[in-house]
C-alpha cells in the first residue's frame, strides 16, 4: 500500500510538472518578481499534491472496484430480465426494463458530482466573488442535478441507440434560449460548470456504465456507442445552473 501511495504521488507530480514548469518559467523570466507568501503557497501546493494522491488512491481502493462491478451487474441481461428469461440472443429487452439502470445513473451522477474537487473549487470561488449571493451548496446541487439528468438521458440514448448529436443539438438550443433570459451574472459561471463536472470521480464510473450498457445490449458496439455520456454530463449542468439562477431570481421577486 505504501508503494501504491508513492506511485500515486509520483504520478500526480508528473501530472503537475508541466503546470509547475510553465509557472516557474514565466515567474522567473517574464515577471521577475517573487511570488508573495511563497512559503505558504509552496505548502499549499504540497497539500494539493499529497491530497490528490490520497484521494485518487482511495478512489481506486474503495469506490472504483465496487462502482464498476455495480455498473456491470446492473446492465447484465440476467439482472434486467431475470435469469430464467435469458434464453437466446433474440429477445432483447425494451428500454423501460432498465429502470434500475436509470436510477443508478441518476444517483451516481448526483453523488459523484457532489464529491468532485474541481467543482468544489469553482463553487468556493463563485461564493467568494459573488459576495455570498451564490451558495456553495446551491451551485453544487444545481450542477449535480444536471449531471444526474444528463447521465440518465445518456443511458437512455445508449439503450435506444438513437444518434448522439440530436440530443446535443437540442441541448444547445435550450441553452441558447436560457441565455437570453437568465440573469447576466450567472451566464459565464453556468458555462464553466459544464466543464468542471466531469473529472476525477465521475469519469471512471460513468465510463464503466457506458461500456457495460454498450457491451451487453445486442446491436451496440462498445467502441462506438460507449462514448457520449461525458458529453451529456457536461451539457446538462449548464441548463440546470441557469435554471437555478432563474428560479432564485423569480423567487426573490415574488416572495
Amino acid at each position: 500500500m505504501a508503494q501504491n501511495l508513492l506511485d500515486t504521488i509520483w504520478a500526480t507530480m508528473m501530472d503537475v510538472l508541466p503546470i509547475a514548469l510553465v509557472i516557474i518559467g514565466f515567474q522567473s523570466l517574464v515577471i521577475r518578481r517573487p511570488i508573495p507568501n511563497i512559503k505558504r503557497v509552496g505548502f499549499g501546493f504540497v497539500y494539493v499534491l499529497v491530497g490528490l494522491a490520497f484521494f485518487l488512491l482511495g478512489l481506486e481502493m474503495a469506490l472504483f472496484p465496487i462502482g464498476k462491478l455495480m455498473a456491470q451487474q446492473l446492465t447484465a441481461p440476467e439482472f434486467i430480465m431475470g435469469v430464467e428469461h435469458v434464453s437466446g440472443a433474440s429477445n432483447s429487452p425494451d428500454w423501460n426494463q432498465y429502470i434500475w439502470v436509470y436510477v443508478f445513473a441518476l444517483a451516481i451522477g448526483f453523488s459523484t458530482t457532489i464529491a468532485e474537487p474541481s467543482l468544489l473549487a469553482v463553487a468556493l470561488k463563485a461564493h467568494q466573488v459573488s459576495g455570498g449571493v451564490i451558495g456553495v451548496w446551491g451551485l453544487r446541487i444545481a450542477v449535480a442535478i444536471g449531471v444526474a439528468l444528463g447521465i440518465a438521458l445518456g443511458a437512455y440514448r445508449i439503450i435506444t441507440g438513437t444518434p448522439l448529436h440530436w440530443y446535443i443539438i437540442a441541448g444547445y438550443v435550450i441553452v441558447l434560449f436560457q441565455t437570453l433570459f437568465a440573469p447576466r451574472m450567472i451566464i459565464p459561471l453556468a458555462y464553466d460548470s459544464g466543464g468542471v463536472t466531469t473529472s476525477t470521480v465521475t469519469v471512471p464510473l460513468v465510463a464503466a456504465l457506458g461500456l457495460g450498457l454498450a457491451s451487453h445490449i445486442p446491436g451496440r458496439n462498445p467502441v462506438f456507442d460507449g462514448f457520449g455520456l461525458i458529453a451529456f454530463a457536461s451539457l446538462f449542468p449548464i441548463i440546470t445552473v441557469m435554471a437555478y439562477a432563474q428560479i432564485s431570481d423569480w423567487w426573490a421577486k415574488y416572495h
Binding site: V50, G51, G58
Partner: peptide, 27 residues
Amino acid sequence: EILVGAFFVLIGLTLFVQGLEMGLFPL
C-alpha cells in the same frame, strides 16, 4: 480495503481543499 480507501479519500479531499485556499487560489 474499502474502509481504508474511504478514509484515504476523506483525508485526501481535506488536504486538497486546504491546499486550494493556501496555494492554488493565491498563486
